[in-house]
Design a protein around this nucleic acid. Sequence first.
DNA 1: CTAGCACTCATTGTTGAACAAAGATAGACG
DNA 2: CGTCTATCTTTGTTCAACAATGAGTGCTAG
Lengths: 212, 212
Amino acid sequence: MNHDSSLVNRLTDRLIAGELRPGERLSETALAKEFDVSRNTLREAFRVLGEQGLVTHIPHRGVSVASPSTADVVDIYRVRHHVECSVLEHAPRNHPNAVRMEAAVDAAEKFAAEENWLEVGTANMEFHNAVVSLSDSRRLMQSFSNVLAELRLAFLKVEVLDFLHAPFIGRNQEVIDVYRTDGPAAAATLLGAYLGDSERQVLGAYARAGQD
Amino acid sequence: MNHDSSLVNRLTDRLIAGELRPGERLSETALAKEFDVSRNTLREAFRVLGEQGLVTHIPHRGVSVASPSTADVVDIYRVRHHVECSVLEHAPRNHPNAVRMEAAVDAAEKFAAEENWLEVGTANMEFHNAVVSLSDSRRLMQSFSNVLAELRLAFLKVEVLDFLHAPFIGRNQEVIDVYRTDGPAAAATLLGAYLGDSERQVLGAYARAGQD
DNA sequence: CTAGCACTCATTGTTGAACAAAGATAGACG
DNA sequence: CGTCTATCTTTGTTCAACAATGAGTGCTAG
């Protein structure tokens, strides 16, 4: 997967893989020993993860894996609506990165057949990152990618990976088809409805799990 | 969020005030002594500034104040178009934060009368942050605020604060008026044209200054 | 003269130890 | 049962040291 051995990437990988659970306290000395780095180096990594929203830092109480609240989920979906829909709506009709979207759907289908839901989730994230990549904006992609990673923590928090992701693979494909045949505007409208449904499902899972 | 560091804030203030010029190299030992903190603490602050795009970090070569290229400016305006226009277009018709936009325009006019162009620029930034605040999304506001701060470094780089900002105060007011009378959609269209003009001016300044 | 090349030097990357400061924990007490 | 204090743990920060890398310097050969 990610072979970049930078400390931040190693930590990010473990976070989005769910090895470090949302809300879990991250002890500096323990993690420093585990990753075989000094506390100071680890703290530098913590700062960037904090800035990316993957980790919550409370002064004199240390850092914990971010544990998105219902309000956070709502906030994240606001971002998704604005960014994804706007980008898709104004994308040129035959953007080269459409193949990235296709590839993500293919990967998701493959993993779904194997019932590997964690990787289905990863492929789904890649699909939406691909959508935003139609903007040709490095900054928008970067910011959006951080928000999606945070959303993945929300999924992990309520532990409903399987049935949350599966139904949306087909809708991803549908978005691509409409984009190709009816154009960006129609695809954006479709994606907007898609996101609304997705948000409702996640909030439902939160309510069932009794989370705040 | 990052409360540990008034240090980050102190550095940010000096950056957007132009005391640390774009492209300027930031020596760890020198700055650590100047702010009377240790190198390690300063490095932690550098990480968050780097993540915010205010500072560029090159391994083994240290950090410099970000010096946005023409490509960066284009990228930043892509973000502005997507975020600002989408937020304004979908904003409710009478959002409370409209008063924030008004206040920013008033402040800009006051500073313009005093020919205090640096503060005019700050007020202008505040106007656009206020626009994005209509989204009611903490994350969108935070990301956007970072991008705007980076754009301010672009302004500082080509040193044309005065005539770049002055003409747009009236257009800010116009956006508010259209938002109130004709509604969000019309205001968004107007803002889009506004941003296009603004981008052209900045790129023109870059070309004149012979910057990349 | 200048293109390379080794060498030196300054800066960053990282470590480990140390201590202060704040929060968490637990036991004594009313 | 609650609360107050004493203790303990963890974070915040500093410092000194060294390794690793990049940049500047001057030498040599062509």
